[in-house]
Structures are given as structure tokens and as C-alpha cells.
């Protein structure tokens, strides 16, 4: 007990001297198919040459937490090390029949739905472990979705700094202004994870976000 208290004391002093934790846990949260894994892949490819996970047009492709440790992001001479945590998309409903439209077999679709429900639970459980969170939204979807509001509400309650990313701005129907209007109290960055559009501004925002820890 005394040892732990001493440990925490020195940890605090260390953080105060060096300003930052050694490795910040950077979580990617959001609804399914918004591009969380695409963005995490973009970062990991930019700084480690290896992707974090598989992407797909079928929702709920990521059904377990995937992470990559010691990802050093460098931008304009600054460097920071992160543990990148890619989470399964959070939803309030999952219907296996929706997967049949993507030509999955009934058995595959049912298994996917079952795994997806577990993924949602896992994502929520991991909320407490994050240092900073990037909420990835699909810029062609309505941002006033209750899941988005619920995730942000939980992060605010836990005092975890949040950055909102409006992904897929390369698409014609993307509406960055609508996302900005929905969340006026937060920084919103419009990007295309697929094509790397505006990714520099995203890295700039990540450094700003990390300062809030």
C-alpha cells in the first residue's frame, strides 16, 4: 500500500517534469462503418508501416478491440508516443439480416451479429481505460445520432479529452458543416482516412488534444 502510494507520487512528479505520460492511450470510437479502422490504419502505416486491422464495406468488421503499442507520431518536429486502440463500432441494434444484403450466408451473418454485440460491450468497457479519444463520424450520415451523443456524454463524464473527426469528406454528400453545427463545443476535423486528405490537420489536432491530458 505504502509502496504503491510512493510509486504514484514519483509517477506524478515524473509526469509533471516531462509534461506528458510516456505512452498515451488514444482510442478510436464511433458508430459502425464510420472509418475508425481506416483512420487507425492510416496512422499506423504513416508511422509504423503496418496496419492495425482489416476494413470492409460490411458494418461491424471490427468486432474485437485491436491495438498497436508504441506508435510514435511525429509532426512538425514534435514527437509523441501513443497506444492506438481501435474499437468495434457502438450501436443500439444489430440485425443479422442487414448482413445478408452484403451476400453473407445466413450462418455467417448470424455469427457476425453475435460477435458484433460482444464487440459493442467490449468497446463500452474500454471507455474507462482511455487517455484521449477520437470520435470518428461518417460525414455523410446524420450526426444527431443518439449513439454519438451517448459516447461523448460518457467521455465528458469521465473527463477524457475528445476530438471529433468527420470522415469521408472526399464524398460528394459529405457535410462537414452539419457535423460542426451538431457539436459546437468540440474541435471537429474533416478528413478522408482513405485518401489521407487533411491528415496533417488531424495530426495537429491530436497534439493539441494530448496537451489536455
Amino acid at each position: 500500500m505504502v509502496g504503491k502510494a510512493f510509486g504514484n507520487f514519483f509517477k506524478k512528479i515524473f509526469f509533471n517534469i516531462f509534461g506528458q505520460k510516456k505512452e498515451l492511450k488514444l482510442g478510436f470510437y464511433g458508430p459502425p462503418n464510420a472509418g475508425k479502422t481506416s483512420l487507425a490504419n492510416r496512422i499506423c502505416k504513416d508511422f509504423t508501416d503496418k496496419e492495425i486491422g482489416k476494413t470492409s464495406k460490411i458494418p461491424h468488421e471490427t468486432r474485437t478491440i485491436q491495438f498497436k503499442e508504441k506508435v510514435e507520431i511525429s509532426y512538425k518536429g514534435r514527437k509523441m508516443t501513443f497506444k492506438i486502440i481501435d474499437t468495434p463500432g457502438i450501436a443500439t441494434k444489430i440485425d443479422y439480416e442487414d448482413f445478408l444484403k452484403f451476400k453473407l450466408k445466413k450462418k455467417e451473418a448470424k455469427t457476425r451479429a453475435k460477435e458484433a454485440t460482444q464487440g459493442v460491450i467490449e468497446s463500452i468497457k474500454w471507455l474507462d481505460d482511455m487517455d484521449v479519444v477520437v470520435i470518428v463520424l461518417d460525414a455523410i450520415q446524420n450526426p444527431y445520432n443518439q449513439v454519438n451523443i451517448t459516447i461523448i456524454g460518457n467521455l465528458v463524464a469521465r473527463k477524457i479529452p475528445v476530438l471529433i473527426v468527420a470522415n469521408k469528406i472526399d464524398l460528394k454528400r459529405a457535410n462537414l458543416k452539419k457535423v460542426e453545427a451538431a457539436f459546437p463545443e468540440y474541435d471537429v476535423v474533416g478528413i478522408s482516412a482513405k485518401y489521407g486528405k487533411n491528415i496533417e490537420e488531424f495530426y495537429e489536432s491530436i497534439f493539441k488534444l494530448a496537451k489536455k491530458v
Binding site: 457502438i90 450501436a91 443500439t92 441494434k93 444489430i94 440485425d95 451479429a113 453475435k114 454485440t117 460482444q118 459493442v120 460491450i121 463500452i124 468497457k125 471507455l127 443518439q146 449513439v147 451517448t150 456524454g153 460518457n154 465528458v156 463524464a157
Partner: peptide
């Protein structure tokens, strides 16, 4: 409360495997 909302989602997901034809909620 925000924590209750996530708990509601978690419990919904957990129930989906146990209640026939339950596909989740809209909120």
C-alpha cells in the same frame, strides 16, 4: 445519466443473445 445510457446499450446487447427475435433498441 450518460453511464446509464451506455449500461442500457450493454444490457441490450447482452439480452440480444438470450431473447428470441430481439434485435436491439432505438433510442
Amino acid at each position: 445519466e450518460p453511464e446509464e445510457e451506455t449500461r442500457l446499450i450493454e444490457d441490450t446487447m447482452a439480452m440480444m443473445g438470450h431473447v428470441k427475435n430481439f434485435k436491439g433498441i432505438e433510442l
